[in-house]
């Protein structure tokens, strides 16, 4: 295992951790955090895989930069929806979630 792939391996671990948290937790805020951890893992995987012995690659980095902005927007939107849901129902998790 080369040190070039260090970030890719961290990304793999974060993806697994994020998915675990996403399934285990009921609370929507925790789910959102877990989802973001999973997203960060996939970003690290994308950037880390590209620098396999060839140094930084601008193309995946630009793609990840785009992805980060989308992730920020979707997280903010999820927070707005989540708070609205809490305001309307008084619940912090979904009813069909047992």
């Amino acid at each position: 295992m080369s040190t070039d792939l260090f970030f890719a391996w961290i990304g793999v671990a974060l993806c697994g951790l994020g998915l675990f948290g996403f399934i285990v937790h009921h609370h929507l805020m925790r789910r959102l955090l877990a989802f973001n951890i999973m997203g960060s893992g996939s970003f690290l995987l994308l950037v880390g895989l590209a620098q396999d012995g060839r140094g930084p690659d601008p193309v995946p980095q630009a793609l990840v930069l785009t992805g980060i902005v989308i992730a920020v927007a979707s997280t903010a939107l999820a927070l707005v929806v989540l708070r609205r849901w809490y305001r309307v129902s008084g619940e912090s998790s979904l009813p069909e979630d047992v």
């Binding site: 792939l5 890719a8 391996w9 990304g11 793999v12 671990a13 993806c15 697994g16 951790l17 998915l19 675990f20 399934i23 995987l45 895989l49 590209a50 396999d52 060839r54 140094g55 930084p56 690659d57 601008p58 193309v59 995946p60």
Partner: peptide, 25 residues
């Protein structure tokens, strides 16, 4: 189980990565 499967699948993908034919940088 789900996170183990996804971790193993991603690890295999990293290990079995193809060598790129052209250099994007």
């Amino acid at each position: 189980i789900a996170s183990l499967i996804i971790t193993i699948a991603l690890a295999l993908a990293v290990l079995e990565r193809p060598t790129p034919t052209l250099s994007l940088p």
